[in-house]
Design a protein around this nucleic acid. Structure first.
Lengths: 201, 201
DNA sequence: CAGATTATATACCGATAAGTATGAAATCCG
DNA sequence: CGGATTTCATACTTATCGGTATATAATCTG
């Protein structure tokens, strides 16, 4: 991960990538503040000093877990932009959200949503990081919808920025309902209802 | 609050209603687990023994704060059902959500959403309570939309339960975006976009 | 006023939080 | 083999968590 190959000294006995992946699972189910170091180290299979030596501290570990999350779970957001029509982009986004929320054991909201809503005490750096990443995907979607509008792919009255915020809101609402125990079928129905609402020209 | 007038003994020096209202504000900004007793007692202007004598414990205090929240902030949900058309019901719901989220100092999600997404560690009773209240409002909305459908107020292909989940999702998504620092104008735009999508027969 | 009763304030409890000091174990270079 | 270096395991520190014991102050009843 962040460390050099480290040719000298006692070799590390764990794989940082695997450990980070385990940490991500914990953060995803517990949130940043809800995840204790005891739980993290237990899941990662390492001790606290190893965690601090390899990842810095809890906060740095979370940022690295966010990186991994974005890389592994949110890649569908980038690829969705390549769909030929705005409608197809929206559907890929919604179905991608559905997939990551129902993929694991129990449905849960996007890690970003959890972190944003749940982190209240301090954790200012967490919130800032999540917001910056969110702004980036939001920008990508707005630009994609602007292109769609230029291509005549959206009705005249529809504002790309507003439509982007709307699609994101439905995705976030899906996450909340997943957290509340909604079944995959219910979430699927939510996708279909949203697509049925999609503006047609 | 929960205690009788208590004609004997030293009189209470604070107003339980006011104290509960202050506690609600803390829970609403910090979430259940994020709100510490130190912060709660500070905001309520009472000491810990007074809190425990009057409200039971932190968990009982939260349930009472939820009662107050539902009574004071979520009353718009009940009254929205009385609107004459399904479209008007949805708009009242969305605008009611907008109001409570932009009413205070800084925008924030619904307390129920915060509690549901944020409470992870134990707090099983919290989650159960929130889910039960949510199921109740969901049921009311589904029934209202079923009535709308019977009255020919909804297009043929639209399922009341699915439409209800969809409206709730947008409301919840609004809360997430409010937590993320969205401006009242952006949230207003979200309401308008959603209404522009509303199915017309 | 005396006693019963209730609320107050202060100080405390065990548990757990994040983070670290310390010494032993495992590797590399010479 | 003998430092130098890095990781590991255990035990620790300080702070805060939710919750409470205790003693004092304020009221009502008699």
């Amino acid at each position: 991960m962040a460390a050099e190959p480290a040719t000298r000294g006692r070799p590390r006995e764990f794989d940082p990538e695997e450990a980070l992946s385990a940490a991500l699972q914990v953060f995803w189910t517990r949130g940043y503040e809800g995840a204790s170091l005891a739980e993290l180290t237990e899941a990662m299979g390492i001790t606290k000093p190893s965690l601090y030596a390899c990842f810095g501290n809890k906060e740095a570990l979370f940022h690295k877990a966010l990186d991994l999350y974005e890389r592994d779970k949110l890649c569908y957001m980038r690829s969705a932009m390549e769909e030929p029509t705005a409608r197809a982009v929206a559907e890929r986004l919604l179905r991608g959200t559905l997939n990551i929320q129902t993929g694991g054991n129990d449905p849960r909201a996007c890690l970003g949503v959890i972190s944003l809503v749940a982190c209240t005490t301090q954790a200012d750096s967490i919130k800032t990081d999540v917001l910056a990443r969110r702004a980036s995907s939001d920008k990508a979607l707005v630009e994609r919808l602007e292109r769609a509008k230029a291509e005549g792919d959206l009705p005249a009255g529809v504002e790309p920025a507003a439509l982007a915020a709307y699609v994101m809101a439905v995705m976030q609402g899906m996450g909340v309902q997943a957290s509340g125990g909604a079944s995959p079928q219910q979430l699927e129905q939510l996708v279909e209802t949203t697509m049925a609402m999609w503006p047609s020209n």
